[in-house]
Nucleic acid binder design. Structure first.
Lengths: 193, 193
DNA sequence: CCATAGATTGAGGCTTCCCTCAAGTTAGCT
DNA sequence: AGCTAACTTGAGGGAAGCCTCAATCTATGG
C-alpha cells in the first residue's frame, strides 16, 4: 500500500532533521496518515527505524569496499571513517543510530572494517595496538561533536575527526593504559546508547 | 534550614547515579521532603544543579593549578585532562554537565586551561595548531564514551583519552582540514548540550 | 449489488513528569 | 499563651507521548 511509503518518507525526513526521538504522532501527521495506521505498519518505533535505515547497511558496505579498493591502505582507512562520519553529519537520526550500530558485529558490512584496519596496520601507518573495538571511540566521539555543533558550527566535526585520526597513526603511538574492550563489552556499550 | 542540605545530599547522590535527568519528585522523596519544598528551595532544576555542582568549579581550578605547578608542561596538560575526565567518569551528572561547561569561557578556572595549553605548546610537545576550543572535542568525546561504557566497560574511557592525547602531540600533527571553532560557536555548541 | 476481509481512523485511557497553591504546620517573639 | 511570619505539604491541573480498539471505510471477488 501507499501508506507504508508515505510513512517511510515522512520518517526519513523527520529522523534526519530531529533525531530518532521525534514523536510518532508527528511522523503520522507528516505522512498524512493516522497514528493507528503507523502502528499497523510498524508495531514499534524500532521497526520503523530499522525500515528507514535499512539501506544504510548496504551503503556502508559499499563505502568500505570502495575504501578497500584504494591503493594506499591509510588513505582507505581514513576515507572510510570520513565517509561514515559524513553520513552521521548529514542525518541526525543516523548519527543517533551509528553509536549503537558501530564497527563491531557479525555484520558482513563491518567485517570489512576489520580488513581496512588490518590492512592499514600491515602497511605500517595505523598503530598496531588499536583494535576494531577502538573504532567505537571514533564513532562515539564524532557523534557527540556532530550533535553539539550541528546548529552552531557544522563541519567542526572534521577537525575533531582529523585530530582523532592523527592519534591513530603509528608515529603517534604511545603505550595505552588499558586493554581494548572485549567484543561483548563493546556490544553491551552500544546497547546502552 | 536542614531541608536544603537534605535536598542537596539526595540530589548529589541521584545525579551521580542516574544523570541530570532524574525526576525532581524522586529527589524530593529521597530527601524525605515534599516536592513543594524542593521548589521552594530551588525554583528550577538548573538552580539545583548549580548548587550541587558549585564546588566543582573550585575543584577544577585547583586541579588546573596543581597541573600548572608540574615541571613538565606536557605532563601537566595530560594530568589536568585526565583528572577532569576522572571527575566525569565518577559522576554521571557531572559527565552530563561537563559537556555544557567545558573549557572555553570567561570563567576564571578555565583561563588556567589556556595557560596549560599554551605552556605545553611552548614546550614543543603539544601541537601548535590546536586551540582552547578544541578541548571541547576531548570533553565531548570522552563524555560520550563514559556514558556508553559506564555499565559494561568502566575504565575504557582511559583508552579513548590516551588515543585522543596521542593525536594532540606535536609529533602527530598533520594539517587540519578546518579552522577551530570561534568562541561564540563553542559557547553555542555547549548550550546545545 | 452484496459480503467479507482488510485497512484506517482518532478519541480516549494510561503514564510520567512538571509545577502551583490553598491549607496546614512550625518556630520564634512578646 | 497568643500572634505572626516563614516554611511545608501533597493533591491536583497540565502537557507530552505512548498505545489500543471499537467503529468506520475500502476494495475485491462472486
Amino acid at each position: 500500500m501507499r501508506n507504508r511509503e508515505r510513512l517511510l518518507h515522512a520518517a526519513r525526513r523527520l529522523f534526519a532533521d530531529q533525531g530518532l526521538d521525534v514523536p510518532l504522532e508527528e511522523i503520522a501527521r507528516a505522512a498524512g496518515v493516522s497514528i493507528g495506521t503507523l502502528y499497523n505498519r510498524f508495531p514499534t518505533r524500532e521497526a520503523l527505524v530499522e525500515a528507514v535505515f535499512e539501506d544504510r547497511v548496504a551503503a556502508v558496505t559499499a563505502l568500505a569496499e570502495q575504501s578497500l579498493a584504494m591503493n594506499d591502505a591509510w588513505e582507505g582507512f581514513v576515507t572510510f571513517l570520513t565517509s561514515v562520519c559524513e553520513l552521521q553529519a548529514a542525518d541526525h537520526g543516523y548519527n543517533d543510530l551509528a553509536a549503537r550500530t558501530a564497527p563491531v558485529g557479525e555484520d558482513r558490512g563491518y567485517g570489512l572494517m576489520g580488513e581496512l584496519l588490518e590492512r592499514a596496520q600491515r602497511s605500517g601507518q595505523l598503530r598496531p595496538d588499536v583494535s576494531l573495538a577502538d573504532m567505537a571511540f571514533v564513532v562515539w566521539g564524532v557523534a557527540a561533536t556532530v550533535r553539539a555543533t550541528r546548529g552552531s558550527a557544522p563541519g567542526a566535526w572534521r577537525r575533531h575527526l582529523a585530530l582523532t585520526l592523527d592519534g591513530l597513526r603509528a608515529v603517534a603511538a604511545h603505550p595505552l593504559p588499558v586493554p581494548p574492550m572485549s567484543i561483548p563489552q563493546t556490544r553491551a556499550a552500544m546497547r546502552d546508547c
